[in-house]
Design a protein around this nucleic acid. Structure first.
Lengths: 104, 104
DNA sequence: TTGATGTGCAAGCCCGAGATTGCACTAGGC
DNA sequence: GCCTAGTGCAATCTCGGGCTTGCACATCAA
C-alpha cells in the first residue's frame, strides 16, 4: 500500500492541464521549461501544476545540473483508482441488497 | 462501457463535501433537505453539489410526492476508476521499459 | 569572464466555484 | 379552505485556484 487517499490525488487530477502534463511525462521525463514550450501557458504555471502533482504523489523530480526533470509516479494513480473501485464496489453491494429487498 | 471519462467525474470527486454527500447517500437515499440537516451548509449548497454529481453521472434523482430523493450510481465511479487504472498501467509499462534499457 | 539558459521566489490579477439569502411555487396534512 | 414542509429559481458575495509578470540566483558553454 502506498499511503492513504485523502482526496489530494483526485483534486490534482481534476484539472485538465495537469492531466495533460501527466500524459506528456508518461512519454518521457521532461523539464518545466520544455513542457511549457508545447503549451499555451507560462513556465511558472507549469511549475505550479507540477508542484500540485508532486504534493499529491503523482510525479517526482530529479535535478540534473541546472535543470529539473520530472517523471510520473504510477503508485499514486493506482492508489486513487483502487480507492474509487473500493467505494464503487461497496455501493454496488448495498444497492444490490436494497434492490433484492424491494423485489420480494 | 458507460461512456467516456472526460474528467467530469474527477472534478466532481475533487470536492470533499461532495465525497461526503456520496458516502451519506451510500447509506441510504435521502433528500437535499435531509442531507442539509446533518451538514454545516445550506440546503441550496447541497442542491448545487448534487447537481454537479448528477451531471457527472454519479447520482440519480427520483421524485416522491413533494420530495426528491437522491441515490448513488456506482457506474460512473467504476468508469472513473477503470480509467485511472488504465492510465496507471500504461505508465507502469513505459517506466518498466525505460528502466530495463537503463540497466543494460 | 561573459553571455545564455534554466530555475526559484514573490506580488498581483482575474474569474469561477462554493455558499448564502430571499422569494415564489407545489404537494401534503389539518 | 388553511398552514406547513419541500423544492426551484435567481441575485449576490467571498475567496482561492490558475496564470502572469518581474527579477534574482545558479549552471553550463564560449
Amino acid at each position: 500500500m502506498s499511503g492513504r487517499v485523502d482526496g489530494g490525488a483526485l483534486a490534482a487530477l481534476a484539472d485538465p492541464t495537469r492531466r495533460d502534463l501527466l500524459e506528456r511525462l508518461a512519454r518521457g521525463e521532461a523539464s518545466a521549461t520544455t513542457l511549457a514550450r508545447g503549451l499555451p501557458i507560462s513556465r511558472q504555471a507549469v511549475v505550479q501544476h507540477l508542484s500540485v502533482l508532486d504534493a499529491a504523489g503523482l510525479v517526482r523530480s530529479d535535478r540534473h545540473g541546472r535543470e529539473v526533470r520530472w517523471s510520473p509516479r504510477p503508485d499514486g494513480l493506482i492508489a486513487a483508482a483502487s480507492w474509487l473501485t473500493g467505494i464503487a464496489d461497496e455501493w454496488d453491494r448495498r444497492l444490490a441488497a436494497i434492490k433484492a429487498i424491494a423485489e420480494e
